[in-house]
Amino acid sequence: MNTLFSTTEKSYFRESLTKEKISECLRSDGRDFKQLRTLESYPSFLNNCNGSTRLVSQDGTETIVSCKVQLMENDSKLNELELLNRLINIDLSIPDLDNSNKLLNQMEDSIKNNIVSQLQGTDKLKVTQKYSFQLFIDILVINCNSYPLGLISLAVYSTLNSTLFPVLISQDDDLLVEQVPQFHDYDLKLIKIPCPITFVVAIFGDDLLLVDPSEEELQTADNCLLINYIEDKKVIGPIRTIQFNDEYTKGFNPLVLSKAFELVESIGDEVLSAL
């Protein structure tokens, strides 16, 4: 994230990706255009959390996500969205960046909004009429070498798909009778919380789209797109652009957008099934 390249280095990277024929373009790490970096995944490796994942990327970036579940009493004054915002707590920390960093806040918000928007209208986190599960999702990124949102979203997806919740054994209707919910001593059940994954797509010219760009590609790209994808071949909003350099950044042809969607739809399911 703090690698500085010289102008010569940058123009070398840029040139190798902006050839006339697309078949002549080469990525600096030898990947295919729609190939993600190799991942190593260790699901559920922390046993005092409800769910956890450790993902190690090829470039050395390591993401550790832990999810802890707590019981929270609903505040009846809040509407659904406000309640969900309180139920989902994301804490992202990257040791190299300080807490008030804008990029950090942007990533935190993006992940939170993705989860909250998927949970709206469902009652997956509801325990009884008065109580809900509160999720604390802590994300730790070590050795961060490039923009890590793509990797983080994969780790969060994998964590939320393996998070185990306590099983309720008391009644679930407590509007009339005042009682604190009771849980089974050791039995846990899986509640699948839908969570979209985010693809970072770098745009070079009108034709070339690169999935999961490395730092040198981010520094030389025309523009980058953040595209959310959820299971069953669906690209969902919000979709936004993001820039990481001043030198090469420029607008892009709107036709590229539909190409990018097709690209993400074609690889999305494969990526999800790999996790």
């Binding site: 690698t3 280095e9 990277f13 790490d29 050395g60 050795n143």
Partner: peptide, 28 residues
């Protein structure tokens, strides 16, 4: 965990992460 399994020429990312599990202590 050794992650630089190919020559990444732009940057020296020969980052090794050592992971130790001592009982239930997990340290990176």
């Amino acid at each position: 965990t050794t992650t630089s399994n190919f020559a990444n020429f732009s940057r020296n990312t020969s980052t090794n992460t050592t992971y130790l599990q001592m009982g239930q202590n997990k340290v990176l």
